[in-house]
Write a protein that binds this DNA or RNA. Structure first.
Lengths: 113, 113
DNA sequence: TCTTTATTTCGATATTTCTGGAATTATCGA
DNA sequence: TCGATAATTCCAGAAATATCGAAATAAAGA
């Protein structure tokens, strides 16, 4: 699993830095590896299909989600590995060394329990 | 240390999702708590002062950096706690549960060593 | 093949963000 | 107080993003 370049990190950060796209991504994370059809997402988030399509394409370009076809539906799902790479990038490049690692260990334990 | 709202997370993500701002932030992380004067940053990153000022204001608004005055200089420094909150937000809301925590534990160990 | 369903792509517009020179504000030292 | 230094704010234009209806594409089933 190769490290992210800063260009890739910027792409990913920019994708998540938008109200609708963050909501889409969070929904897909919740949905798990089964993913959700575009139509389902549009309905749940109550947004016009063409707008949704624009944001899905953005997230896919950034590598944060993947899609597969199932009959007439296109199923989108979160790429957890990509997200891990992004978080790892932030921890390695944008955190304050040991203090940061300690602080985050606490968070990890909280989430795991 | 209160959790980030999704609006705050979007602000922070948007601040880092820009070439110059990411470079500024990384530089400030490296610089440590002593921080750097605006002029130093402008020189090191070779950018016009007014542009730099725009980006510093953006990062400060997002809560990722803080500034203090020292004589004629304004010293900027990274707010590690804010960064930790952002990473924690991503792990809690945008990661795939246990699998994600395991993957990131590995990263933490790698960074710590 | 024709129709229906699922979704994307196109296109025009509105909005936001970025850029950098010029003018302005704040501080220091003589 | 004056002159020099450090930085910001102002401004206008350029570039990038977001919005969403209408038209186009892809697949399924009768």
């Amino acid at each position: 699993m190769a490290d992210l370049s800063s260009t890739q990190a910027i792409e990913a950060l920019g994708s998540l830095a938008q109200e609708h796209r963050l909501a889409i991504f969070r929904l897909l994370v919740q949905a798990g590896s089964g993913g959700l059809a575009a139509g389902d997402i549009a309905e749940r988030l109550a947004m016009p299909k063409s707008s949704l399509s624009f944001h899905l394409a953005h997230l896919e370009r950034a590598g944060l989600i993947v899609r597969r076809r199932d009959g007439r539906s296109l199923i989108y799902s979160a790429d957890y590995a990509a997200m891990n790479r992004l978080v790892a990038y932030l921890m390695e490049n944008c955190c304050g060394g040991a203090g940061c690692v300690d602080a985050l260990s606490g968070s990890l334990e909280r989430i795991a329990s």
